[in-house]
Each structure stands twice: as structure tokens, then as C-alpha cells.
């Protein structure tokens, strides 16, 4: 399940936008300009089922996203979707992993408190006995230079 973001959860001044997510789901997004730096030495790890519903998260995911584990398990992975991310990036991600290939890219993720954090994300299909049973996403600290390039590039992809 995914619900609209609530002003009470937001830290700092925020903007509001409605994002069209997968299928016909629309989500009210409240977002700020506050960046949380990626912690050194950590990996953010999650797995989803074939529909993109979160089935596993690690501690770093919980810490960085601001959600509790209970809120994350069962939620669609697009709970992290930031309005500054071009839809084309996620279309490319899904097209790639559904072909059974690895996807890698730089992603601006949305926190529960409206803030954001940049990651270098890698997503791979989980193949068990020859069939894809889900996807694993591992995020690591990105280079600032690459992030700056994405800040310039992504607005041109809408």
C-alpha cells in the first residue's frame, strides 16, 4: 500500500506535487530541499517481488528512508520516488531487469520527511531454478561529480 505524504511528517519548508505512479495510482508528494548525506561504508539493500512490492529491507534502508520496516514491507518500491527523477529512468530500469539484465544508475530518493538522498543504485533480477522470482536493489555512495552531472541532466529528460 502507498499513501499520500502527510504535512506532519515533513521537516522544513515543503513543496507539493501529485505524482502519477504505476498503473493509475496518484500520490501526493511533499518535498523539501534538505539532503541527507549518504553514510560512508554502508549499503542500502532491498528486495521486491515481481510487481515491485518490497519484501525485504536492511537497517540502512530504514535509517535513510525515514520509514519503519513495517511501513516499508508490502509497500511499492516507488514509495521512494522523488519528483525530480525523470520517469524515463524507471522505465529503463524495469525494461532492463525484466529482460533479466542488471541495471545501474544514479537516483535521487525521497525520504518520509520530505528530504532526499542520492545513491548509485544497482538492480538485478533474482533467478531461482531458472525463473525470476523478484529483484534485489543495492544502493551505495555515489561520486559527487556524477551526482552533479545528474542534477544537470535529469531536468532535460521530462
Amino acid at each position: 500500500m502507498i499513501s499520500d505524504m502527510q504535512p506532519d511528517d515533513i521537516v522544513g519548508d515543503f513543496k507539493e506535487v501529485y505524482l502519477q505512479l504505476y498503473n493509475s495510482i496518484k500520490r501526493r508528494i511533499l518535498y523539501t530541499d534538505i539532503e541527507t548525506p549518504y553514510p560512508d561504508g554502508k549499503l542500502i539493500v532491498s528486495t521486491t517481488d515481481l510487481d515491485g512490492t518490497i519484501t525485504h529491507v536492511n537497517k540502512s534502508f530504514v535509517e535513510m528512508s525515514g520509514y519503519t520496516e513495517e511501513e516499508l514491507i508490502g509497500a511499492p518500491h516507488c514509495i521512494l520516488r522523488h519528483p525530480d527523477m525523470p520517469p524515463a529512468a524507471f522505465k529503463d530500469l524495469w525494461n532492463t531487469v525484466q529482460k533479466g539484465e542488471k541495471w545501474q544508475g544514479f537516483v535521487k530518493n525521497l525520504r518520509k520527511d520530505g528530504g532526499f538522498y542520492w545513491v548509485k543504485a544497482t538492480v538485478i533480477p533474482n533467478i531461482r531454478k531458472g525463473s525470476v522470482v523478484g529483484y534485489t536493489s543495492v544502493r551505495r555512495k555515489p561520486s559527487r561529480k556524477k551526482v552533479e552531472e545528474c542534477i544537470q541532466l535529469y531536468p532535460t529528460l521530462f
Binding site: 549499503l43 539493500v45 528486495t47 542488471k102 545501474q104 544497482t122 538492480v123 538485478i124 533474482n126 531461482r128 534485489t136 536493489s137 543495492v138 551505495r140
Partner: peptide, 13 residues
């Protein structure tokens, strides 16, 4: 173990 291997795969680039 499969999960760990998947994770290693994501790092190997």
C-alpha cells in the same frame, strides 16, 4: 546464500 550471491553480483560492476 543466493541472496548474498545476488548482492555480490550487484557490487561487481
Amino acid at each position: 546464500t543466493e541472496f548474498m550471491i545476488d548482492l555480490m553480483d550487484t557490487l561487481a560492476t
